[in-house]
Amino acid sequence: MNLSNISWRKLGLNAGVPLVILIALIFVPFYGSWADYGITLFSLFLVYIILAVAWAMFTGSTGYLSLATAAFYGIGFYAAALLYPAEGALVPLFVVVLVGAAVSFVLAFIVGAITLRLKGIYFAMFTLGLVLLMYQVVNYWLISVLGIRGIVVALESNEVIYYYLVGILVVSILVAYFIKRSKWGLALRSIGDNEEAAAHTGVNVTMIKILVFAISAALMGAVGVIVATKTTYVDANTAFNPMISFSPALMAIFGGMGNLYGPAIGATIFTYIQEILQTGSLKNYYMLIFGLILIATILYLPSGMMGLIQNLWNRIKGARRRALTRG
């Protein structure tokens, strides 16, 4: 085996596979009779893949368990509700997406600055509390102050929604990839391993944590905007649903967070299971199955599906190598 072979294979895996997937995604709406269902299903895949990738970007390396996903996603919903109502959009959709992302970024920055000094488990409690607080405050504001329950958002076509999601996915993957490959990725992992040592080795621990938390929140906010134009009706229940905090976390853990593909694979598998369950006879058992898989994953698959696949692959390669040397 020579060097040029290895680098080609690496390049193929790093750029080629994602490119093929991207091209396949772009053509989803053109697959004939299947396209109508396909576009809805794939939009759902994309939503959860983005949320899982964005969540894992921060939590996967730092180990800080964030349950604030629904808070930022919900901000996206309300950005759409206020700027893109059914009575007439105030600004173009891409501006709404940027606003949703920016507001989420700022809120995450503030929340991070306050809470990321806290030890792991407190942070998890705090972020879950944030979702519940936003739910209460927004609900109070809508019902008691404005006297309304929900707001209707302008409906977008399935294609527009779909391509926006593809765009946000590309941005998410690129951001995740560059953070992982850069020195900031290394710093994040050092924080996950031993925060105190990282600080004494010159890593500006607080700033890096806050920034990455805010970046991942911005992506979640952007997704929220687009989903709101699909569901069209925004109220506190749909916007700040704690399940939106839990699901992407489970998906990323199930897929495995040691690798960029892990959260994406976990999200795809789970969204599909969810689709099957919710349309089939088992639709009332979704959460039950979800919980059982979560516990089983933590007990038996600590590094997720990707970890399992990698282990198997190493074993196969090892076996092959042994066979070769023996033969």
Binding site: K183, L186, A187, R189, S190, G192, D193, N194, E196, A197, A198, A199, H200, T201, G202, V203, N204
Partner: peptide
């Protein structure tokens, strides 16, 4: 640390999941 005072710890605090080279690299990079 950046001013020029570095330390080690009584109970070791290495970045246990990172290889030796990355442990040292973090010091050099940051």
């Amino acid at each position: 640390c950046r001013l020029g005072i570095a330390r080690t710890f009584q109970t070791v605090k290495v970045f246990s999941n990172l290889p030796v080279i990355d442990n040292v690299r973090i010091g050099a990079l940051f």
